[in-house]
Design a protein around this nucleic acid. Structure first.
Lengths: 210, 210
DNA sequence: GCCTTCCGATACAGAACTGTATTGAATACG
DNA sequence: CGTATTCAATACAGTTCTGTATCGGAAGGC
């Protein structure tokens, strides 16, 4: 698509990776361009030669994140056992695996994701770019989960995106809660709740599986 | 408890109110002390005379928020129709009213709440203070909802805090989503989802209502 | 009404960050 | 190879923010 030397691509990647860490620690607006460059082992010269602004880098970060997660999702699909099952627990477990494959992992990524989401909520300039990747990702995950559920002999009780939204909400809340160390959330809280929620989102398929 | 002149109290309040706005726009770490003071119509002299640091002000903000929401909750309780009902929709509506009473409202408060939550997740120094208010609030809301549900002839299917966590997760996600303007979330999405979730969280009481 | 105490404004010195213009070293190419 | 080009480092000038020390006016006590 774009002409990019290997050197340049590597620089951009290092900067983006560093941004994840710094965003996680300081937030998008609290992160100084200088700090990101330092974390990546560059000076600002490298930054301004590759990006026009911090928001510009944020978009690249979204893109990278999107691609990595879709790749992980594809891999998870390839590895799934596609035989229909009458065991609901089985279905739940396999479906959640799909979902988790498309979620950020590790403290830095989790925090950075939330920071980006919040940045989109407060910045009208950034929001469109954020929506672009998020909506597309949600649709793809929804479609994937819908087809997995169907292959296993079940169907969703609600629209795909609504189901994903619900899972996403619980996942985010629980993950952040465990980082904060909230006392009202016991261990395994998130997993249990997700399984329970998912149980209400599927039912045995009314139509015969082809 | 603490000796505080009226003048001082007013200054602190104005600073805290201003902080909500600036935090919403810039995030906790992106907000300059200077900026908060300016928004409140003071200079930094006032700030450092009243607070030792930005985190110190954050704690005061948590406290204020907690007290306002608990007061709103108390008021909501007072206004509720306590007659048992066999109409589930009725129950759902009244229970959600309780819950909403204890949620922040308005763009600034919503964003600031999220910023504080994220700040707690990344800052070990701030997290304990955040937990203190959050856990206490969750317990109080949980207990309130539990007793309302019971008075109406139903019971919760899960622990109070777990139920509140689930509602809270969906509420936050939906609210932020509507600020971002996500395309996969149609209007009324949040309310519909909350009602549906709540439906799975209650069942007719097995024991007789006293 | 005067005097004391309080408390926010001002002054200050330094640190951190910004974006740009220029330079020099690495890389690619003929 | 040597030369042209690319790209990150450096130099620069300006702005913003920090926390503290000091000052002066307003509030409250006698």
């Amino acid at each position: 698509m774009t002409e990019l030397t290997a050197r340049r691509a590597a620089t951009r990647e290092r900067l983006v990776d560093a941004a994840v860490v710094v965003f996680a620690e300081k937030g998008v607006l609290g992160a100084a361009v200088e700090e990101i460059c330092e974390a990546a082992g560059f000076t600002r010269g490298a930054f301004y030669s590759n990006f026009t602004s911090k928001d510009d880098l944020c978009v690249e970060l979204l893109q990278r994140n999107y691609e990595l997660q879709m790749a992980a999702l594809d891999q998870a699909i390839a590895g799934i056992d596609a035989a229909p099952t009458s065991n609901l627990d089985d279905l739940i477990a396999r479906t959640l695996d799909m979902f988790f494959a498309a979620q950020p992992e590790g403290r830095h990524w989790v925090l950075a994701s939330q920071e980006l989401r919040l940045h989109a909520a407060r910045s009208p300039e950034f929001a469109p770019a954020y929506r672009r990747f998020t909506d597309q990702g949600t649709l793809r995950v929804a479609e994937t989960i819908r087809s997995v559920v169907q292959a296993l002999g079940y169907e969703l009780t609600t629209s795909g995106p609504a189901a994903i939204g619900l899972l996403h909400a619980v996942h985010e809340y629980g993950t952040l809660g465990s980082l904060i160390g909230s006392g009202t959330l016991e261990g395994g809280y998130k997993e249990r709740l997700l399984a329970e929620v998912l149980r209400t989102l599927v039912r045995p398929s009314s139509t015969t599986v082809r």
